[in-house]
C-alpha cells in the first residue's frame, strides 16, 4: 500500500508518522510493520468518520496525535472503537 511505503520512508528520514486507516485494511497495514497506526471501524474511503461528524473526526485525530506523543517503539497500533454514525450529527 502506498501510504505504508510513505510512512516507512519518512520515518527513516527522521520525520515521525502516524497512519489513520479503515480497519478494512488491517491485515495489509500490519504486514507492513509501520511505526504508528490508528485503525477505525469505518467503511472504506471514510477512515476518519462519517461526513459532518466533526466530533468523531477530531477524536480520531487526537488518538493519532496521542500516539505521536507516547509511542515508544515501531509496530504500534491503536484500535479506535466507535460506531460509524452518519445520522448522529
Amino acid at each position: 500500500m502506498s501510504v505504508g511505503h510513505v510512512a516507512r520512508a519518512m520515518e527513516e528520514s527522521g520525520i515521525a508518522t502516524v497512519v489513520i486507516a479503515s480497519g478494512v485494511f488491517s491485515d495489509r497495514l500490519r504486514a507492513m510493520h509501520l511505526p504508528r497506526i490508528v485503525l477505525t471501524d469505518f467503511p472504506m474511503g471514510r477512515p476518519l468518520g462519517a461526513p459532518n461528524d466533526h466530533e468523531t473526526q477530531r477524536e480520531v485525530l487526537l488518538a493519532a496525535l496521542d500516539m505521536i506523543d507516547h509511542t515508544k517503539q515501531g509496530g504500534s497500533i491503536h484500535i479506535f472503537n466507535r460506531d460509524y454514525c452518519p445520522w448522529n450529527l
Partner: peptide, 27 residues
Amino acid sequence: ISHIYQYQQKGYVGTGRFKYETTAFTQ
C-alpha cells in the same frame, strides 16, 4: 453499516504483496 464493513474486511483479508519484519522509528 456493520454488515458492509465486516464484508469489506473479508474482501481485504490477507497480508497483500508487501511484508516487512522491521521498521524505522523516529523517537
